[in-house]
Design a protein around this nucleic acid. Structure first.
Lengths: 144, 144
DNA sequence: TTAAATTTAATTGTGTACAATTTATCTGAT
DNA sequence: ATCAGATAAATTGTACACAATTAAATTTAA
């Protein structure tokens, strides 16, 4: 008789990852609605606040997103006035994304979000730090 | 001068969660292609293998998915012959999902997947167990 | 008992994700 | 100098994911 214990949802690592990720993104929604940003647009803006200017290629590397996802996200952010898209002069293949003044101002409006999210998470600091460390370890050792 | 340290991607908990989740799902793809299942269809089948019969409502609770996502997934799985959809006799609002013989046989073909995925993850067992425990704790304390 | 509230799926609309392909540009080896 | 290969975005197609709404069935309460 076969033992399918390993096929139970509760024994998977992938399933709680998948659920936690989705539910955290869902918790961001009311906060991000105030900024007129989706979660994907928000992490894109976080990368832009940090780097001011990036090629679409570099953004994709930072965010782990391909052009199929990023192209429409960047067009939307441009339409909202938060970034500018322009071809590189040195290499016409490359698309340079720059933060606009409006995009820069948005950072002030977003400044309270990390603390607001923190209040939703009812775990002690040590567990959160361990979780953070292990997720980064997982990313570094198991991805690509 | 404002300090936006908390707005950096690397300091977020959400971002590594989001990346790890996506990348794990991507790693499943070649294994699931052999079964003609997507990741969402796979976790749905895992729930069905475990419970044999569930209402759509119960499935949604187990998988953290709403009817907007589940309805098309279940129709696809029915088209593939792995589950049956029928209205409950006692409560016509309720949709009963049952495993078909073909769906049951699929479990044999899936039995090797957890071990195959395990080989992709280059972390020691203790870290994986800690990660698993903390993700469940996160789910239990911080979701809904 | 019947009207209001609740519950369950389905539908609609928007926005990702990603594989695969296409198009344009650039680089390097001959 | 040129063309074969590489690179960067965009496009196409499929499949979620979820909020909001709708529709039907059931339950509750006046």
């Amino acid at each position: 008789m076969a033992n399918y214990e390993q096929l139970r949802l509760r024994n998977q690592l992938c399933f709680p990852l998948y659920v936690c990720s989705k539910e955290v993104v869902r918790k961001y929604k009311p906060l991000l609605d105030e900024l007129d940003l989706t979660y994907t647009q928000y992490i894109t803006m976080m990368a832009m606040w940090e780097h001011r200017q990036l090629s679409a290629k570099e953004l994709g590397t930072i965010l782990y997103l391909d052009s199929g996802t990023l192209t429409p996200v960047l067009k939307t952010l441009e339409k909202k006035g938060f970034v500018e898209r322009q071809r590189s002069k040195e290499d016409e293949r490359s698309l340079i994304i720059s933060l606009t003044p409006e995009g820069n101002e948005l950072q002030d409006k977003a400044a309270h979000i990390p603390a607001a999210m923190g209040k939703c998470i009812d775990m002690d600091l040590e567990d959160l730090q361990t979780l953070h460390r292990l997720l980064h370890k997982f990313m570094d050792t198991s991805i690509k």
